[in-house]
Simulated scan of single mutants.
Amino acid sequence: MGTRYARFTQFLKGPVEMIKHAKSLLSGNQHSTPGHNPVGGIVMVGLMLLILLIGLTGYFSVKEFLGDLMGEAHEAIASLALAVVVVHVAAAIIMSLLQKENLVRSMVTGKKQGLPEEAIRFPQYLIGLLLVLGSIYCFYMIMTGAAPSLTQ
């Protein structure tokens, strides 16, 4: 679900495409793409998995599953996720300089210059708004104790 550049089919290109992209960077023949490049896409999938693991280990830590092991794992995975975020932003800055376009702004706004046929015709603002509201509601339910099984 989502626009074409937010789908996993765009993120996951495979090892052959990743190697081709890395070689093009080293040779100086890189080209701009509207979505993530093959290496950036796999980093995004890895970051999503790390965030899932942060949530799971945090939950198991609160439930005192496996003693202090889950708390330690939670902290280690959170530190690793932070490092991946720093590397991702640094890579965006470096690629911005190499490609002479502001990729950091694109990361924040979700908009990037491209060809007309690469444009997203119908941005899915309603779905994004519903996801944000659902997340706020879940957070509210947990923080007020209305979902006690998650916090006890």
Rank of each mutant, 00 (worst) to 15 (best):
L150W: 15
I94D: 06
S96C: 02
V62S: 06
K63F: 04
N102M: 00
P38K: 09
K20V: 09
M143R: 14
K23F: 03
G40F: 07
R7G: 05
Q124H: 10
M95C: 03
A73S: 02
A73Q: 01
I42L: 10
E117S: 14
A91M: 06
A90D: 04
V86D: 06
A22H: 13
A73G: 01
K63D: 07
K63Y: 04
E72V: 02
L52Q: 10
K111M: 14
D68Y: 05
S149G: 15
C138S: 13
M18N: 05
G128I: 01
E101F: 00
T3L: 04
G145Q: 13
Y5M: 04
L80A: 10
V104W: 00
R121K: 15
N102Y: 00
R4A: 12
G55H: 02
T3P: 05
G41L: 04
L26M: 08
L97K: 15
A76M: 03
V132L: 14
G145H: 13
Q152K: 11
Q30R: 03
S24I: 02
Q30P: 01
T9Y: 09
G128R: 02
G67H: 09
L98S: 04
E101L: 00
F11Y: 12
V62N: 11
K20D: 10
T109K: 11
E118T: 09
K13W: 10
P15Y: 15
L12W: 15
A22Y: 13
I42F: 09
T57K: 05
G2E: 06
A83F: 13
F60P: 00
S24Q: 05
K112C: 04
Y59M: 05
V45F: 08
E101I: 00
Y59W: 07
G2S: 06
N102Q: 00
S135N: 10
T33E: 04
K20N: 13
P148E: 08
M143F: 07
K13R: 15
Q152A: 09
G28A: 02
S106R: 03
H36I: 12
A22D: 07
P123N: 10
F11T: 06
N29E: 01
Y137W: 13
V108L: 10
A119K: 14
V16Y: 14
L25Y: 09
F11L: 11
L49I: 13
G71Y: 04
E75S: 08
L82N: 15
M95D: 09
F60H: 13
L133Q: 02
H74Y: 03
L129D: 00
E75M: 08
V84P: 01
M141A: 11
F65D: 06
F65Y: 12
L49W: 11
K100T: 00
M143P: 07
Q30W: 01
A22F: 12
R7S: 07
G145Y: 11
A81Y: 06
P34V: 08
I54E: 06
L115R: 12
E17D: 12
I136R: 08
L25I: 07
V132N: 11
N29M: 00
V62I: 11
L52V: 12
I54Y: 05
Q113C: 01
P123Q: 08
I94F: 10
L131K: 01
E117A: 14
F11E: 01
Q113P: 01
V87L: 13
E101C: 00
I93P: 01
N29P: 00
P148F: 11
F60A: 13
F65M: 08
I51L: 15
H88Y: 08
L53W: 07
A6N: 12
L53M: 11
